[in-house]
Amino acid sequence: MGSQVKLTELVRGLKLSVRSADGDLEREVTGGYASDLLSDVLANSEPGNLWITLQIHKNIVAVASMKDLAGIILVNGREPEQDTIEKAEAENIAIMVTEMPTFELVGRLYGLGITGTK
């Protein structure tokens, strides 16, 4: 189901903090993908997906960029490493953070109309 939700609305609605590419939040989110395995995201995520993960390593930016993801939300209070932020700025990938764990964040995104692959 193609939802029309934009990143800005999610940032506001769920009180996410933006850590990179805050000028690029007008992007529309096509769905959600939750995973902490880079290979899984590479293989199975869809362009425009919003990626939920615990991983903070700069490789996440490479994956997001390669798969043309809408953005990354780091959960459970994780902060991106400095070179992750730098790389994300360079590649224009929005990284957001939240204290919520994956289950709860996804639950609330789902409530806002963002779904995952079935």
Binding site: D36, L37, L38, S39, L54, Q55, I56, N59, R78, E79
Partner: peptide, 17 residues
Amino acid sequence: PGYSTAPEWVRELGFGA
């Protein structure tokens, strides 16, 4: 917390956070 030298294959197995 968060510091790790685990290689990628370890992360793929669910460790190295």
